[in-house]
Design a protein around this nucleic acid. Structure first.
Length: 417
RNA sequence: GCGGUCGUAGCUCAGAUGGUAGAGCGCCAGGUUGUGGUCUUGGAUGUCGCGGGUUCGAGUCCCGUCGAUCGCCCCA
C-alpha cells in the first residue's frame, strides 16, 4: 500500500455521478441543437504546435503570455495543450484545404487547458463546447450562431438566469480610431487610473472600459463610446446584427463595455452572462474574427463563433435543480446458483429488448435486494426454484413494494408499459 | 503572479479559556436462512493535512509547508 495520498492535479477534477450527468447533458444537448442548425462536429487535437496559439490569440493576451501549458516533446518540438479551440479549428480548416468549400459550420466539444489559479467555475482543465461559422462575412451568420447558442441555453433550462449582451468592436479602421480616442482620453487622466488600468493603457486600452475598479468607473463613464467611430460598413453590420437577432427572437441587451480577451475579434462581440456564479459571470462568449484563418496561412476567411464553459453551464444546472436523474434499471435476481443460467438468459433478453437491466455477481436474495434498492432499480425480477420450473418470475415494483407473478414471455411487455 | 478564509471518520460538521477525540449521515452485522426501501439492536472507523517550535501536556498557541476554497488579474 502506498503511503502517498494521490489527488487529482490542481485545477482538475473527476467527473463522477451527478457531476458527470450534468456535464454530459450539456454536451449532448449542444450536439443535438447545433446539428439542427447545420453545424458539423469536428474533433481537433488536444495539443497543437505552439505557434497555432501564439500567433492566433495574440502574443500579449494573458492566455498566451502566462497561461499556456507549453512543453517540448521528445522530438524537441514546442507544443501546447489547447487553451481554446477556435485557433485549432481554423488551423484544421487550412491544413485540410477546406477553405475551398466555404462557408462551413463547425461544432466541437472537449477539454481545454489554462495554467491559472483555480476558483469557482474556473479550472486548469476545463471543457468547452463551441460553434463556428467559417467563411461568412454576413451579419446573418453572427445572428444565427448566437441564436444557436441561445437555443442550447434555453434547451438546458438556463435561459432565465442568463442574459445575452452584445456589442460591436467595429472593423479594424473603426477600432484603430476608437483606440486612439480612448488612449487620448485615459492618458489625460492617467494618474487617476487604477494601477491595473495604467498597465492596460499600454497593453490593451480597450480593456479599461471593462474595469471593475471603482476609481476607474468615473473615467470610463466619461470615455467616448465606439459608436461615433464606426465606419459606415461597421455600422451597417451592427445594425443588421441587432435586426436579425430580433427576427430570431433572441432577447439581448446592448453593453458597450464588452471587450473580448483574445486579440482576434472584430465587429460583433457577445457574452451570455449570469450573476449566479460568483466572479465567473460569463457562461458563453464569442464574436467575429475575420483575420484568424489568414493567421493560420489560409485565405481571408471572415468567421464568427462562440465557446461556452461546460463546467459553468453545469454549475447553473445544479443551482437550478436541473441535475439529470440516474437511469433506473431492472435488477434480475436468481435465488440460488441453480437459477443463474435462466436468470442470465432473461437478463440478456431484456437488454436486447432495449430495457436497462442488471444482475449482481454475488450475494443471497437479501443482499441482492439491498443492492438493487441502493442502486435505485425500479424493479426486481426474482427467480427461484419454483419460478424457474414454471417459466415465471416474481416481478417486484421497488417503488410501490408490490409484487406479482409474470411469465417470462410477458416480462418485456410488462416492463415497457 | 497577488490577497482573504479554511484543513478533525467515507461525507457534512462539533470540539470556550491548551488536559491523550465526538455527532449525524453513510458503512458492517443481527432482529427477518425466498424479499429491499421503514423500524429496531449492536459494531467498526481517525498517524485531528504535513514538518518544526512553545509546554509537564497541543486538534486547540506560534512558525513553516502543502492542499482546498473564494477573490484580484484574466477568462468559458
Amino acid at each position: 500500500m502506498s503511503q502517498i495520498k494521490l489527488q487529482p492535479p490542481r485545477g482538475t477534477r473527476d467527473l463522477i455521478g451527478e457531476e458527470f450527468r450534468r456535464h454530459h447533458r450539456v454536451i449532448k444537448t449542444a450536439r443535438r441543437i447545433s446539428a439542427l442548425y447545420g453545424f458539423e462536429e469536428w474533433a481537433t487535437p488536444i495539443f497543437e504546435d505552439t505557434r497555432v496559439f501564439a500567433r492566433g490569440l495574440g502574443e500579449t493576451s494573458d492566455v498566451v503570455s502566462k497561461e499556456m501549458y507549453e512543453f517540448q516533446d521528445r522530438g524537441g518540438e514546442s507544443v501546447t495543450l489547447r487553451p481554446e479551440n477556435t485557433a485549432g479549428v481554423c488551423r484544421a480548416l487550412v491544413s485540410g484545404g477546406l477553405t475551398q468549400s466555404l462557408p462551413r459550420k463547425v461544432f466541437y466539444a472537449g477539454p481545454m487547458f489554462r495554467y491559472e489559479r483555480p476558483q469557482a467555475g474556473r479550472y486548469r482543465q476545463f471543457h468547452q463546447i463551441g460553434a463556428e461559422v467559417l467563411g461568412a462575412a454576413e451579419p446573418l451568420a453572427d445572428a444565427e450562431v448566437i441564436a444557436c447558442g441561445y437555443h442550447i441555453i434555453r434547451e438546458l433550462g438556463l435561459d432565465e438566469g442568463v442574459i445575452l449582451e452584445v456589442n460591436t468592436l467595429g472593423d479594424a479602421e473603426s477600432r484603430d480610431a476608437y483606440r486612439a480616442a480612448l488612449i487620448a482620453h485615459f492618458t489625460a487622466h492617467r494618474d487617476k487610473l487604477s494601477e491595473d488600468s495604467q498597465r492596460r493603457l499600454e497593453k490593451n486600452p480597450l480593456r479599461i472600459i471593462d474595469s471593475k475598479e471603482a476609481q476607474d468607473r468615473a473615467l470610463v463613464a466619461e470615455a467616448p463610446t465606439i459608436e461615433p467611430f464606426l465606419t459606415e460598413k461597421a455600422r451597417a453590420h451592427w445594425d443588421a446584427l441587432r435586426r436579425h437577432l430580433t427576427t430570431f427572437a433572441v432577447p439581448f441587451r446592448e453593453n458597450p463595455r464588452i471587450v473580448r480577451g483574445l486579440d482576434y475579434y472584430s465587429h460583433t462581440a457577445f457574452e451570455f452572462v449570469t450573476d449566479r456564479l460568483g466572479a465567473q459571470g460569463t457562461v458563453m462568449g464569442g464574436g467575429r474574427y475575420d483575420g484568424l484563418v489568414e493567421e493560420m496561412g489560409g485565405p481571408p476567411t471572415p468567421s464568427v463563433g462562440w465557446a461556452a464553459g461546460v463546467e459553468r453551464l453545469a454549475m447553473l444546472m445544479e443551482k437550478a435543480g436541473l441535475t439529470p436523474a440516474a437511469p433506473r434499471l431492472v435488477t434480475v435476481i436468481p435465488v440460488s446458483d441453480a437459477e443463474e443460467g435462466v436468470a442470465l438468459n432473461l437478463l440478456q433478453s431484456l437488454r436486447a429488448a432495449g430495457l436497462g437491466a442488471e444482475m449482481g455477481y454475488r450475494g443471497n436474495l437479501k443482499r441482492r435486494m439491498e443492492r438493487a434498492n441502493k442502486q435505485g432499480a425500479r424493479a426486481a425480477i426474482i427467480i427461484g426454484e419454483t419460478e424457474a420450473a414454471a417459466g415465471v418470475a416474481q416481478l417486484r415494483d421497488l417503488d410501490a413494494g408490490t409484487q406479482e407473478q409474470v411469465p417470462f414471455t410477458a416480462l418485456v411487455e410488462r416492463l415497457k408499459k
